[in-house]
Nucleic acid binder design. Sequence first.
DNA 1: CTCACTTACGTAAACGTTTACGTAGAAACA
DNA 2: TGTTTCTACGTAAACGTTTACGTAAGTGAG
Lengths: 334, 334
Amino acid sequence: MVYTIKDVAKQARVSTATVSRILNNQPGYSEKTKAKVLQVIEELGYEPNAVARGLVKKRTHTIGVLFPSVSSLFSGKLLSGIESVTHAKESSVIVCHTQELGSKTMKYLHLLNEKRIDGLIFASEVLKGEYYDYIQKMGVPLVLLATESPEFQVPYVKVSDYQASYSAARYLIEKGHTKIGMISGGDDVIAGIPRIEGFKQALKDHALLPLNEENIFWGEDFGYKEGKKNFPFLLKRFPNMTALFCASDHLAMGAMSAAVEIGMKIPEDLSIIGYDNLPIAEMATPPLTTVEQPLEEMGKRAAAGLFRMLESGDKMRAEIMPHQIIERKTVKHL
Amino acid sequence: MVYTIKDVAKQARVSTATVSRILNNQPGYSEKTKAKVLQVIEELGYEPNAVARGLVKKRTHTIGVLFPSVSSLFSGKLLSGIESVTHAKESSVIVCHTQELGSKTMKYLHLLNEKRIDGLIFASEVLKGEYYDYIQKMGVPLVLLATESPEFQVPYVKVSDYQASYSAARYLIEKGHTKIGMISGGDDVIAGIPRIEGFKQALKDHALLPLNEENIFWGEDFGYKEGKKNFPFLLKRFPNMTALFCASDHLAMGAMSAAVEIGMKIPEDLSIIGYDNLPIAEMATPPLTTVEQPLEEMGKRAAAGLFRMLESGDKMRAEIMPHQIIERKTVKHL
DNA sequence: CTCACTTACGTAAACGTTTACGTAGAAACA
DNA sequence: TGTTTCTACGTAAACGTTTACGTAAGTGAG
């Protein structure tokens, strides 16, 4: 048997209004009735129905989070951050993994709209016009996480891919490297191009490389297999390379694996630096030097910003999170 | 402006009942009115309010999932499976990460109860009596995932830890090893003890080891650091070990790292087999041989079972999922 | 003692659906 | 033609809350 506010009211010989007031601690009752009502609540094990409450308050205390994939460490860390602040706000999060399929994304958006979520976090994927328009219609606050939108003005939380890549390259240069290669993860506007540009700029600023870009391999995605597959091609094009910047830790792991398979030693024969600082970076042999994105903190910030928008109504502004080089064992000082 | 069923009814000059019938395609209207209503819906961009619907139908099309941690690859894979079948059922999943804190778990349970979720998946943690009792009171179907309950009769989906560990040990034996060590991840009844017992039984069945268990190191948890920290202790106790079974891939990665740091070669000097087959296993250098748990499939099964219970009302029975040895490069044939 | 406030409630409408029940007209049948 | 059975709806209650509004009793000032 699950009880309602009416049962409580009846048992305590008061009206439902009074019970509701006590529950939401608003004024308008004596200490005596409060005690009585609380006692009845305790006895019955009554818990308010958030669905009914949501209906009248037009607030469900639920936010939606859209990820391309939910099973990667990357999403996991972001989600962990989001979830912890959301829970602290007495709310909960509905996760959706779109598998980067537009149709799935739209279907999720409709579902979330029907559920009348309070707000939305859109993570690590590009915000298409179709999505944006629909979210506008939904009328809920939106924040982008680990991505940004050149097209629409939407608050976001991310590190600067350009600057972080610049840092990675400069780090290698400071360690005495001059022949530096890069394996990129794609040509998307968010994480693809800026990382390449940051890398190139660092080399240029130190008057290092020719401009024909034979030292950059443009991959298809950011995965392990891609890194493993593409490393040999890059090496053939650029055989005297002494250091390599990979646009993700997964790519770096793949490249490292390919390198040791052909008998190279890391970091003696080749220095490698990754990007993300996923837990695997620490577990690699040797442990991977990489540039850290504070993923969990980013998730927290995004959620905190969303709740601020919800509560105060004013817009959140973009937050550029600091990145950081995590020095481990894959870069050799020449 | 967000429209309601009343707006649609008014515009289409019918009653809300008719609109509702059309929306839920129940009989009771002509093709002509249906067309008219659908047209109005289209024009207004009306979408039904799932909150109101949930209130009267007493079904929210939302399930809850409780994880100890949401940022591990392990949870990620499980969640991915759960999420995909849940979405196929037009439902959504609320994730909660308890951080293995009892107080947090109870708080989540209350939250989920207030939200009137339809069902609950409880993953990879032991189901305490307190939780079980409360969930019973909630009156929603429950399935355990990657865990089981010796105490209460609750359906679960998992591999047999005992058998999987037995297989791992037997695999090493078949490769000619006789001096086999193990690093365990704890002494809990679910994943700790059974893996140790399976391992011991395999050795016993092949008349291999003495019974004093100096070849087993009982760790505190299943993490990388624990593996790294404990490997040297085990090696000291059991110096002529040629093969090692670790109760998780993370432990194996840690042990591997510790081993190479003291100059050992894998698999020449020591063979290692892990447990889980997380993505990192493939990315390790050398790639880690391990026993696979089909995590994503397990997530799918658990969710599918939960929905079956919801729809048909009958109990789901426990499902033991098959495990499998994934042969990679960390085990040498003696 | 009267008047104005305040306190402590209760009443009932509203939130946006679904659905049991009722009914008018058409169709079918005898 | 009269009776019955469908079909195609409409009416209104119900789901479990919150909250605007009303009101009776108590309190304090003059």
